[in-house]
C-alpha cells in the first residue's frame, strides 16, 4: 500500500532540465503525451493561424503540424474567431468542458502579466494549451482535448481548483 510517485527536489530539477526521453520513461505514456502536446502547442503558436492538422506520437516522440495553404486565409484567431462563432451556428448548444486534470491552482497565462493562453472567442486545436494547473510547484499544462472555439473561461486566474472542475468551455468544430 505504499505507492508514492513524488520525486525529490533534485529529481524535479532534473526533469525540468533533463532529456525528453528520461522524462518519458519516468512519466509513462500519459505524462509523455502531455509534454508532447505542450511542445506541439508551441509549434502551433508559430503561425498566425490554426493548423489544418496536428499530430503527436509517443513512440520515438514526433510532432507533425500541417497548415492549409494560406490562400483561403483562415480567420486570424484573435479578432476573427469571434466572427466565426457567429457565422457557424449548426452545433448550437454543444459544449465541451476542459476540466482540471488535478487539484491545484489555475493560471490563465504562462506568468503573471503575460498574455493569457486563450481568450473568449479564440480558436483552439486539440492539444493546445489553454491554461496551467500548478500543484506542488509543478506547472501542469491544461490542454484542449478537442478543436473549437473558446466560449468561456469559467475558472479565475489564481483560483484553487479541484480535480475535474470545469475551467474552459469550448464550442467544438473547425479544422476539418
Amino acid at each position: 500500500m505504499t505507492e508514492t510517485r513524488v520525486e525529490s527536489a533534485d529529481e524535479q530539477r532534473a526533469v525540468e532540465l533533463g532529456s525528453l526521453e528520461a522524462e518519458m520513461t519516468r512519466l509513462g505514456a500519459e505524462g509523455a503525451m502531455e509534454i508532447l502536446c505542450r511542445s506541439l502547442s508551441g509549434v502551433v503558436g508559430l503561425a498566425p493561424f490554426p493548423p489544418a492538422r496536428a499530430s503527436a506520437r509517443f513512440g520515438c516522440a514526433s510532432i507533425e503540424v500541417e497548415w492549409a495553404s494560406p490562400e483561403p486565409a483562415p480567420a486570424a484567431p484573435a479578432a476573427g474567431a469571434a466572427a466565426a462563432v457567429e457565422e457557424e451556428e449548426p452545433e448550437a448548444e454543444e459544449r465541451h468542458e476542459v476540466r482540471a486534470p488535478l487539484v491545484g491552482t489555475f493560471y490563465r497565462a504562462q506568468e503573471p502579466g503575460a498574455k493569457p493562453f486563450v481568450e473568449v472567442g479564440d480558436a483552439v486545436v486539440a492539444g493546445q494549451q489553454v491554461g496551467i494547473v500548478e500543484a506542488m510547484k509543478l506547472m501542469n499544462p491544461v490542454v484542449a482535448e478537442v478543436s473549437g472555439w473558446v466560449t468561456d473561461v469559467v475558472a479565475g486566474d489564481g483560483e484553487r481548483v479541484e480535480f475535474g472542475q470545469p475551467l474552459v468551455f469550448l464550442r467544438p468544430g473547425g479544422q476539418e
Binding site: T4, R5, L102, V103, L138, E162
Partner: peptide, 21 residues
C-alpha cells in the same frame, strides 16, 4: 476537496493531490 478519479492510485494513494489540498 475533490482530488481525483475513483482509482485509488490517482486519488487516495496520490500524495501530490493530497498535499496540494
Amino acid at each position: 476537496v475533490q482530488i481525483g478519479p475513483p482509482a485509488p492510485r490517482q486519488s487516495y494513494l496520490y500524495p501530490p493531490a493530497i498535499i496540494e489540498a
